[in-house]
């Protein structure tokens, strides 16, 4: 029992109540910042894609359209909440909540900079994988419970998508686990800082590639947005949702993108640190707070999400399955084999 509490509370806590208070404040800060980020991620996306398509994007609400996310939020909040007559009501109500909670819970184990993490779990990486698999239930069940053919097809696609990429995603991170020797995200970042290249992306390029492709499928973004597929399935699994329930799916999707980008930054790009040879070369860069580097990496990948969305067409359903099973999983397995052999060789076991 104490061990559970100690895992939740940061090690070396002075006072129980104080520790709980600090955690609550941390949670409030992280959720507030994450949701604000999500609001502006939608604005960022619309602007980026607009400029890639030689348009201007939102510019009516506030200067440069900067208040557009708030206008959208207010609109969604006051929209009528419509529930299909023959929907399975309990599951219809529950699925957006499951989806959103799974996304928000994942934020708990992300270290945003050195020492700032709500729950410094030893199994942080596994926790993230577990929560991402929980999120898939929100999608599958919303598709089923809506009692609509479009939603149902979206839900079925989500189910088959989950089983084809989630294994590859878990396996792609095993190389990082082997190199860092830990499942704790903070330890993984520290291991990268101690590593000669400063980032794991160079030795782990295969794992990096597999993870990036799987991250697109995980967040249901183009080119793998098959459960949503607005040109074939209206809006896929959330066709029947309106008002704030729709907003929960929307927020969950963007929080998911934030989490995948953060995971990528933490596991492959060195998180809040920059490689040591850079700080040796330009010493004043080490004075920059870690959160700046972390956010730069996260936003670079968010931009990549939008870039890909504006560039690539949607994959066909069987193509995603083929990529997952025939390309990503073998690549991830080869990566694990090579990483394991090299690690054994370095340790002198071979």
């Amino acid at each position: 029992m104490n061990t559970i509490l100690e895992t939740i509370i940061a090690p070396g806590s002075i006072d129980f109540a104080l520790a709980i208070g600090i955690i609550l404040v941390k949670i409030a800060v992280v959720i507030a910042i994450a949701l604000l980020h999500v609001a502006y991620a939608t604005y960022f996306e619309r602007k980026v894609i607009a400029h890639m398509q030689v348009r201007l994007g939102p510019r009516e609400v506030g200067p440069y359209g900067l208040f557009q996310p708030f206008a959208d939020g207010i609109k969604l909040f006051f929209k009528e909440d419509i529930i299909p007559a023959k929907a399975d009501k309990p599951l219809f109500y529950l699925s957006p909540v499951i989806f959103f909670i799974a996304a928000l819970t994942s934020l708990a184990v992300l270290p945003f900079f050195d020492g700032f993490v709500i729950a410094d779990l030893n199994i942080g990486l596994l926790f993230l994988l577990a929560m991402s698999s929980l999120g898939a239930y929100g999608i599958i069940l919303s598709g089923w419970s809506s009692n609509s053919k479009f939603s149902f097809l979206g839900g079925l696609r989500a189910a088959s998508q989950v089983i084809s990429y989630e294994i590859a995603m878990g396996l792609s991170l095993v190389g990082v686990m082997i190199m860092a020797g830990s499942l704790n995200l903070s330890d993984i970042v520290r291991a990268q800082h101690a590593y000669p290249t400063g980032v794991f992306v160079i030795p782990q390029f295969l794992g990096f590639f597999v993870f990036v492709v799987a991250a697109f499928a995980e967040t249901n973004r183009l080119p793998f947005d098959l459960p949503e597929a607005e040109s074939e399935l209206v809006a896929g699994y959330f066709t029947e949702y309106s008002g704030f329930r729709f907003a929960l799916f929307f927020l969950g999707e963007y929080t998911g993108m934030l989490i995948m980008s953060s995971l990528l930054a933490l596991c492959f790009l060195g998180g809040w640190t920059i490689p040591r040879f850079i700080t040796d070369f330009i010493p004043f860069l080490s004075a920059v707070p870690g959160i700046v580097w972390f956010l730069m990496k996260v936003y670079a990948f968010m931009f990549f999400y939008y870039w890909v969305r504006a560039t690539l067409p949607r994959y066909r359903y069987d193509q995603l399955m083929a990529i997952g099973w025939k390309l990503l999983i073998p690549l991830a397995l080869i990566n694990i084999l090579i990483t394991g052999l090299v690690k054994a060789w370095i340790k002198g076991l071979l």
Partner: peptide, 29 residues
């Protein structure tokens, strides 16, 4: 988790809830 077996707890969720149950749901649907 209550038995301090955090790894088993995470694997329980990832394997059973994440993979097997989704497969189950897929077949049921």
């Amino acid at each position: 988790l209550f038995l301090n077996a955090e790894f088993i707890a995470a694997i329980q969720i990832i394997v059973y809830a994440g993979a097997i149950l989704v497969l189950f749901l897929f077949v049921v649907l």
